[in-house]
């Protein structure tokens, strides 16, 4: 849910990184954090297990600058990818404005990718949202690994509604900002429609 504060002249939007466990959602946020100027970002919070697996969420507030005199802020969240954290995953989707689905390019993770998209669709529906109308970008992460599933095959299996799709290597930043920009733009275009 976009929050517009006319008194403080601020627009706040929420973007959620979704996808199977160990797919690179947290790595996306870490890269964005490392490459963003200090005045444009807040503190990055990671609620993780001792083994550095996301337990509840990661959070990164980003300040993109002003649009029509309104300071535009994006709050980036990741969900815990592991299957048994579904209750927490659902909570993070509350009030979401746009989703980035981070898919893992390893052949053995394709089933987990498909299952996670199905889970996203279901959890959004529980919040009254429809993935068909939700701003969405698809990221094929880990394109640098040997034996990565071919791009067109991943597209065929994972693309939901011809959403913008990006190849990425989140560890070194490839495709990370392109994916983020794509969803942020879709959210702002939605804002214009109303």
């Amino acid at each position: 849910m976009t929050f517009i504060n006319y008194a403080a002249r601020e627009i706040n939007c929420k973007i959620v990184y979704y996808g199977p466990g160990l797919g690179g959602k947290t790595t996306n946020l870490q890269y964005i954090y490392s490459k963003t100027a200090p005045e444009r970002k807040g503190k990055m919070i990671s609620l993780a297990t001792e083994a550095d697996r996301t337990l509840f969420f990661d959070f990164l507030p980003l300040d993109l600058g002003t649009i029509r005199g309104f300071n535009t802020r994006f709050h980036l969240y990741t969900v815990p990818g592991q299957v048994f954290y579904d209750a927490s995953r659902k909570l993070i989707l509350k009030g979401v404005d746009g989703v980035i689905f981070v898919a893992d390019s390893q052949p053995e993770r394709m089933e987990a990718n498909v299952e996670s998209i199905r889970n996203l669709e279901e959890n959004l529906r529980d919040h009254g949202f429809d993935l068909v109308t939700m701003p969405l970008a698809l990221q094929f992460n880990k394109r640098d690994i040997n034996g990565a599933v071919p791009n067109d095959e991943m597209y065929r299996m994972l693309n939901y509604k011809r959403e913008p799709t990006f190849e990425a290597v989140a560890m070194n930043g490839l495709g990370v900002f392109d994916t983020l920009k794509s969803v942020a733009k879709q959210i702002l275009v939605e804002l214009r429609k109303r």
Partner: peptide, 13 residues
């Protein structure tokens, strides 16, 4: 129910 946005105007703020 999900609202598309929440708006706070000067007076209420």
């Amino acid at each position: 129910m999900s609202l598309a946005r929440m708006e706070v105007y000067e007076e209420e703020f």
